[in-house]
Every structure is written in C-alpha cells, then in structure tokens.
Design a protein around this nucleic acid. Structure first.
Length: 587
RNA sequence: GGCCCUGUAGCGCAGCUGGUUAGCGCGUCGCCCUGUCACGGCGAAGGUCGCGGGUUCGAGUCCCGUCAGGGUCGCCA
C-alpha cells in the first residue's frame, strides 16, 4: 500500500509515530508561513501541517481535490488548538514529504465546505464521482452495501440459495413495457430485459431448489417518478412448500434484521396485518401511512336520500381536519386547487364553528337534519374542518386518502421518527380490464396471472371475479410499499381457470408462457415468495426521500444518464449489424 | 399523455409594475499573511439571462412556441 495509515483513524495514541497518508485535499488554509491541509480519504479527515521553507512552498500550490501522498509524523496539536469536531482532532500530521499523485481541475461544484449542501441534482449526477467523495453520498453507498450484507447473511443462515437469473430473456406481453435488445446472430429477433425474475424463480421451484433468493436488477420501460428508475433492484425471494404465513414470517425477519442491525430499531413482531378492503375503507389507500391515526369516515348511508347532487354518489366519505375551521378562505380555496391537481372535481368542506355552527358553501346545500347530526357522524368537534369526497367509490376513497395524509402533514400529526409497518393482505385477484390496458376479457390480474386465490376462493373465484381474493400480500412502511408477493398457482386446473377469467386462450397462454406451463406439467411444488423494492428500502434506511440517492449512478426522469450521456444514437453500421430492421426467419 | 413549478457567471440565488453599465454569496485566478479548521486581507477575471419567434422606442422581465430538469395524475401484471 502507498499509505501506512488511514487519515480518519489517527489519534493521540499514535503521537510521535511516522505515518504515510494518501488522499485528497478537502480544504486548504494558507497562512503564508504555515499551511493547513485537511486530507480526506475514505476513513475521514486529518489536518496536515506544512511549515516554512520547502514544505510550505510545495503546499502553496495545492488546490482542492488534488490527490496526495504525504509523509510526516503524528503530533499532538498545541494546547487550545484541538478540534473536537473531528475524530482525529487531537492530533495533526506534520509533513516532511509531499508527493502530488495527481492534480484536479477547478471543481464544477463545491465538494466540501460552504455551499456543498445546496448543489443541484443535475450538477451532482453529471459529476457523480465528485459527489460521491462527499461524506453523505458516500455514507449512503456504504449503508447500501451493509443492507445487502445483512439480507444475504440472514437468508444464507436460513438455507436460501442465491441464484443469478438471465438479464437477456424473452419478452412477455403482459405488464410493463419491456426494454428490448437486438440479437446480431439472429437478425430480427430480440431479447427483453426482465421486468423481474418472476418466471425464473418459479422455474427454480420446479427445479427443486426450494429456497431461492437474489438481489436482482429489474427493467421496466415506463414513465419515471421520484421513486422509480428504468432499472431498479429487488430482493427477490421464493420458497417451496410454504403458505402465506410462512412467507410473511420470513419477510418480517428480513425487515427486523435490517432495521435492527442498521438503525438499532426494534421492529415489534409480528407486524400487524390488515386486509386490502380494510386499508381502503379506513385509510383510502392500499399502502396506508399508520404514523397517522386519523381515519376516514363512511357517510354513504348517512347521506342516503340527500338532495345535494354532489353527495348523490356511490360513495360519500369524510376526513376531519382538527382545528381546520380556523383556515382562511384563501387556504380553503387552495385545498380545492390541490384536490383538482390530483384529478378530483373538488373537495367539499363544512367548517364547525367554535359555537357549533356549521358554515361553508356546502352547508347551505344540506338539509337541516343532515346538517344537525353531521359533526357527530363524522367525528368532528367544534373548531374542526370536515372534508368530503363523493363519487365512484375508488375515486372518492383515493382523494380522501390523499387528503388524510395531507391533513396529517399540515397539522403535524405525523411522527417523523416513527417506523410503522403493516401487512396488507387479501388483495383482489382481478380488476376490470377497462382500467388496465391490453386485456381481451372483462378482467385482468391485479398482481400477475400466477397469483393463487386464497383458500376461501379456490373453488369459486371464476364465478365472482369482482370479489375474489388472492393469497397476495404487500408490506408497507410509513405509507411506502416496500415489498409484495403471493402464493403461486401450482395446479394446472386452477391456472387454466385464471386464464379463462382474464380471457387468455390456450394458444395465447402457450405462446406467452408455454415454457412455464410445460415446466408446471412435471410436478410443480406449492410455492410462493416476496420481492422487496430494494432501492426504496435503502432510501428509508438511509433517511432520504429519493431512491436516486441510494443508486450509485442514477438516471434522470427521461431515462437519461447525465454522466455517460446514455442513451445515444447508433451508427448505420451498428444498426445494420444488430439486425434491427431485419425480418426474423420463421422457426 | 394531462397539469403545476423551475431554467440568469463554475455552484447556489436576487433582479419590484418592461427602462440606461444584469447584481449578491461561494468558488476560480493573482498578491499578502506562522495556528487555522466555512481562516483572513487586497485586487481581478468570469454572463448567447435554456432556445426560437412575437409585442414594444426599449424585453432577463410581457405573450406564443419549443427544449431540459423537478413534482404530480395517468401508466408501472
């Protein structure tokens, strides 16, 4: 090694010892006759002193982020000059030899010191290698490595086998759009990048592995959000001869190990469970944020027979904003704007005065008797504001659920330090096809077409697809879905009935999933699993809002990589060689 | 694809109802400085105001279009 010690590890115990350090110039404080350099390496910082004569002259030309080798001795700092902010603050290194390993051009943004905190994301990603020299981004990458290690250790201890599955695979028409890769050796034919290892992990169960896991890269060609990237990572797990409780138990162990080992947070087990229907009814969301106690109120029955047209709807619900009656008109108008920006027509409200009198535009439209019992029915007290959502049930619940969280945010009702986990179970198997694209029948699978019906519905899911429930479960943390999975179908009969419901003919099923169905003709074991959204899990553990912070080289919303400039055009020669425009030979 | 916000020096931002030479902080460059740790002092350089068009005597500012980034809804089995 070029160095003998790491900069951040030097302490008074080493006083008097010669050391050789290697790292970067974090900051320079040039006093003419004496020059201080904060030398940074991956372990931290130490102050290096260059005194008069040759050493001071040599140090004078140092600049930020020059890469150095420094030989010197560890000295206690003069009394009164210690820096308690630094772990190495009791000592400094008096330089006797300086070797500039490489110089740095002027920086595109401040790496250290004042202004380093406020750098825009674009600049940071363009020079991500400089961004990662900074302590916080570096901390996050190190944390992610430990997140992986904790998961691997736990799964290894429980007999799981880490298997790598292909990233060049077959395009399957359901689900998200695939990224496609042309194949030079078979012009006109294309690989797809996997949206997840779903089909392969099921094949591994047929293969008798029984316990599989993988930290797997997945690819989906969809529009991006703050919490989405075109390539992202899942902790993918699958197990044979298990039921839903077994998978949930394992998922809880993973969560408890991560939060316990990395944050010192004890997650009380078992994690509570809630049905999908209950989550929607009480919180207006399939990923409820339980840091907030506030619940929705169903007033559909209460308003039955109302003459107020807006409330003549499939569903009428309310959420109460404590103390909300004091909001000025301008703020209440802003709520309307907020609701419209989320696709709602508006957000009806009734204010409960301190005197109990009900005010607001909607109050005038309600009958005296509906008005009289309203605060009690909604659970509102004097001084509160009642917000109402009315319309088709799913839409009304969606806006009410969003309002609930927004109320919690504005009223400071959310405990930012809390970790509230919940399993959302008994998800519906199917949803009407018109809300999702591409299905030929009247129904489409909510999860994927291999998700098994739960015990209650095995015999009759195809008779009442609208209400059929699956052995499908999501784990939610503070309002974020961090993982989800299901018990898969291993019976050919059940599988065929699911295909029938979603309108998939035998020919289509064979065309799309033939290899899986063939495998399933050779004694497939009952199996199920779970996949964690690993980027989101890491972001939560790191305490950051954006998953970009936990990805070494993330892309922007348009799928652009600001560092490499990918994607790029290709040359006509590349295009020809890749066979992009070729017509595939029939097989 | 819809809607909202942003785009001014290397970085972060200001620029009021249109007005003469577009400012501030940090950074950069030069000189000075022997105990600083966001060191300090003096001086200097650095800008097609994202791009295109329009209104106007005059546009960073107003209008239209467009591009890029961020957010959000749709979408994401």
């Amino acid at each position: 090694m070029i160095r003998t010690h790491a900069a951040g590890t030097l302490t008074a115990e080493l006083a008097g010892q010669p050391v050789t350090l290697a790292g970067w110039v974090a900051r320079r404080r040039d006093h003419g006759g004496v020059i201080f350099i904060d030398l940074r390496d991956s372990s931290g910082l130490v102050q290096v002193v260059f005194r008069e004569g040759d050493m001071a002259q040599a140090a004078h030309r140092l600049r930020s982020e020059f890469c150095l080798r420094v030989v010197g001795t560890v000295d206690r700092r003069p009394a009164g000059n210690e820096n308690p902010e630094l772990p190495s603050g009791e000592v400094e290194v008096t330089a006797t030899e300086l070797d500039v390993l490489s110089e740095s051009a002027p920086l595109p943004f401040p790496v250290e010191g004042a202004g380093a905190a406020g750098v825009g994301e674009d600049a940071r990603l363009h020079h991500r290698y400089l961004d990662l020299r900074r302590s916080e981004p570096a901390r996050i990458l190190r944390l992610r490595s430990r997140v992986n290690a904790v998961a691997r250790r736990l799964l290894d201890e429980r007999g799981f086998i880490e298997v790598e599955t292909p990233t060049l695979t077959r395009s399957t028409p359901e689900g998200a759009r695939d990224f496609l890769v042309p194949v030079r050796l078979q012009p006109g034919n294309w690989y797809a990048l996997p949206q997840s290892p779903q089909l392969f992990k099921q094949l591994l169960m047929v293969a008798g592995l029984e316990r599989y896991y993988q930290i797997a890269r997945c690819y989906r060609d969809e529009d991006f959000r703050a919490d989405r990237q075109p390539e992202f990572t899942q902790l993918d797990i699958e197990q044979s001869f298990v039921d839903q409780d077994d998978v949930i138990e394992l998922g809880e162990e993973v969560v408890a190990a991560l939060w316990g080992d990395l944050l010192g947070v004890e997650v009380p087990l078992p994690i509570p469970r809630m049905t999908y229907a209950e989550a929607l009814r009480r919180y207006g969301s399939d990923k409820p944020d339980l840091r907030l106690d506030l619940e929705l109120v169903d007033l559909t029955a209460y308003f039955a027979g109302t003459e107020f047209r807006v409330f003549q709807a499939e569903h009428v619900g309310a959420v109460v904003m404590p103390g909300g009656a004091a909001q000025p008109r301008k703020t209440l108008d802003a709520w309307q704007e907020w609701a419209r920006s989320r696709g709602a027509r508006g957000l009806a409200y009734v204010l409960v005065g301190e005197d109990g009198e009900l005010r607001g535009p909607v109050a005038k439209n309600l009958s005296a008797e509906h008005l009289a019992g309203l605060p009690e029915a909604a659970g509102a007290a004097p001084g509160d504001c009642m917000f109402f959502g009315a319309g088709p049930r799913a839409e009304a619940l969606a806006i009410l659920g969003a309002t609930r969280v927004e109320v919690g945010r504005r009223c400071g009702l959310i405990d930012e330090d809390a970790w509230r986990f919940v399993w959302v179970v008994d998800a519906p198997m199917f949803e009407p096809a018109d809300t999702a694209a591409g299905a030929a029948g009247g129904w489409t699978a909510v999860h994927h077409p291999f998700t098994g019906p739960n015990a209650d519905w095995t015999s009759r899911f195809d008779k009442d697809p609208a209400h059929a429930l699956a052995y499908a479960y999501d784990i939610v943390c503070n309002g974020n879905e961090i993982g989800g999975g299901s018990i898969r179908i291993h019976s050919a009969d059940v599988q065929q009935r699911v295909f029938d419901v979603i309108g998939l003919t035998q020919e289509q099923a064979k065309e799309q999933f033939g290899f899986l169905l063939e495998a399933f003709s050779y004694g497939p074991p009952p199996h199920g699993g779970i996949a964690f959204g690993w980027d989101r899990v890491c972001a939560l553990l790191a305490g950051t809002d954006s998953i970009r912070e936990v990805i070494a080289f993330p892309k922007t919303g348009g799928g652009y990589d600001p560092l490499t400039g990918a994607p790029t055009a290709i040359t006509p020669a590349q295009r020809k060689e890749a066979g992009i425009d070729a017509v595939p030979n029939p097989r």
